[in-house]
Lab assay of single mutants.
Amino acid sequence: VTLFVALYDYEARTEDDLSFHKGSKFQILNSSEGDWWEARSLTTGETGYIPSNYVAPV
């Protein structure tokens, strides 16, 4: 499992996005959609889309 960590805070703009804070960790579920990845937050357990340029591999 590849884990990613948030580099910045992000406020969701749609109900499909995940809001998160810098330092939040994610499991990436689908990275084939270009700049928006489907991810599960390891902090909240919620699933949604995150901007790929806001995260980096742990």
Rank of each mutant, 00 (worst) to 15 (best):
V58C: 13
V1Q: 13
F20D: 00
S19E: 04
T44N: 07
F20R: 01
F4C: 07
G45K: 05
A12D: 02
R40E: 06
L18A: 01
K25F: 15
S32A: 11
L3S: 06
E46T: 07
S31E: 09
G23I: 02
T2M: 13
S52T: 06
I28V: 10
Y54T: 05
K22D: 01
V5K: 04
N53P: 06
F26K: 00
N53F: 10
E38I: 15
S32T: 12
L18K: 01
V5Q: 07
A12Q: 06
A56W: 09
S41I: 10
T44L: 03
E11V: 14
A56S: 09
T44R: 03
Y10T: 00
G48R: 02
G45N: 08
E15P: 13
D9I: 03
H21Q: 14
Q27C: 12
S41D: 14
N53Y: 10
T14K: 13
E11H: 10
L42V: 11
I28T: 01
D9S: 09
K25I: 15
D9W: 05
E15Q: 12
I28S: 01
D16K: 15
L29C: 08
T47V: 15
S31F: 15
S19L: 01
V1I: 13
G48N: 01
Q27T: 10
S31I: 12
L18H: 02
S31P: 10
A56H: 09
N53H: 12
L3I: 15
Y10V: 01
I28Y: 02
R40N: 04
W37P: 00
W36Q: 06
W37E: 00
I50S: 01
V58P: 04
R40A: 05
T44A: 03
T44P: 01
Y10E: 00
E33V: 11
A6K: 01
A12T: 04
L3T: 09
W36M: 13
G23S: 03
Y49D: 02
K22P: 03
T2V: 13
G45Y: 06
L3N: 05
G34W: 10
P51W: 07
I28R: 04
Y54P: 00
K22E: 06
S24E: 15
N53R: 12
E46N: 08
S32F: 10
T43Y: 09
W36V: 07
Y10P: 00
E33A: 14
V1P: 11
F26E: 00
R13T: 13
Y10L: 02
H21M: 13
I28L: 06
N30A: 08
L29V: 08
T2H: 11
D17L: 10
V58Q: 07
F26N: 00
L18S: 01
Y8I: 06
V55C: 02
S41F: 06
F4R: 02
S41K: 12
L18G: 00
P57N: 05
L3A: 06
V5I: 13
V5Y: 12
S19F: 03
Y54M: 10
G45E: 05
A6R: 00
S41V: 08
S52R: 13
V5W: 07
P51T: 02
D16T: 14
G23Q: 02
A56F: 08
E15T: 13
K22M: 08
P57E: 09
S41Y: 06
G45M: 07
A6I: 02
G34M: 11
G45C: 08
E11M: 11
I50N: 01
T43S: 13
S19Y: 03
D9G: 06
G34R: 12
V58S: 07
S19K: 04
D16F: 15
L7D: 01
A56G: 08
E38W: 15
S24I: 06
D9A: 07
D16V: 13
E33M: 14
D17N: 10
L42M: 11
L29G: 03
A6S: 05
H21S: 14
A6C: 03
H21V: 14
G23P: 00
T14D: 11
R13I: 11
G48T: 01
D35M: 12
K25G: 05
P57D: 05
T44F: 03
E38N: 08
D9T: 06
K22N: 04
E33I: 11
D17S: 14
V1G: 13
